[in-house]
Simulated scan of single mutants.
Amino acid sequence: MEGLGNPVLAVCKPAPGKARDRRLLPDEEKRLLGECAPVLKAIILFALETGMWRGEIQKLRWKDVELIKCTAQLLDTKNREDRTIPLSSRAIAVLKGLPRNINGKLFPGTDISHSFTAACKRAAIKDLRHEATSRFFEKGLNPMQVSAITGHKTLQMLKRYTHLRAEDLAKMLG
């Protein structure tokens, strides 16, 4: 039995995929929103302002939102931790424009994944979570503040979702 080694040791792990660095081009947000029904438009605007995952948005209930405090409590998130996120004035405006539903959900009955994918396909756009995270940094938030909003646990993961534009950095440098 001496010649037999562990065959698992001979298996190579696949290389990690190339990180996406996709950001919305100047006309794409308008084009995407133009492809959306009113509810999906509200969801996308809310997602851009909060950086929330589709599942978090889908589960969000009115009882989890504090309009006075400008916060939303996210329960049992993707990483299994609750967090409270701040809501911008634009996110609050989106919420104030929504009808209240008897089941308490902000966006009831909306298949976000299917609707979003279809709208993005029509507008030729792929991902918005990277966009929201990058916009938080462009607003001047620091990594700790952004991770508190997005729920990223490590700086490495936060960096993976952040793609600052070189031309914007050049303007900041003067």
Rank of each mutant, 00 (worst) to 15 (best):
149 I>G: 02
55 G>F: 04
144 M>S: 12
127 D>F: 14
159 K>C: 09
147 S>L: 00
100 R>D: 10
58 Q>I: 07
74 L>M: 08
100 R>F: 12
15 A>E: 13
163 H>D: 15
68 I>S: 14
39 V>E: 10
96 K>H: 12
67 L>A: 11
120 C>E: 01
138 E>D: 14
58 Q>F: 05
74 L>D: 06
142 N>G: 00
121 K>W: 04
110 T>W: 10
44 I>M: 11
79 N>K: 00
166 A>E: 15
70 C>K: 15
38 P>A: 12
82 D>I: 02
102 I>Q: 14
123 A>H: 06
23 R>H: 12
24 L>V: 03
159 K>N: 11
154 T>S: 01
2 E>T: 12
21 D>Q: 15
146 V>W: 02
117 T>W: 00
67 L>H: 07
166 A>N: 13
132 A>Q: 09
99 P>Q: 09
172 M>L: 13
68 I>D: 15
174 G>R: 11
148 A>T: 03
136 F>I: 06
14 P>I: 03
6 N>L: 01
161 Y>A: 07
157 M>T: 00
168 D>P: 04
94 V>N: 02
108 P>W: 06
162 T>Q: 13
128 L>P: 12
161 Y>Q: 13
162 T>H: 10
140 G>D: 08
105 K>H: 12
14 P>G: 06
34 G>M: 07
77 T>F: 00
106 L>C: 03
63 K>M: 07
23 R>W: 11
150 T>W: 00
54 R>L: 05
48 L>A: 06
151 G>H: 00
112 I>P: 07
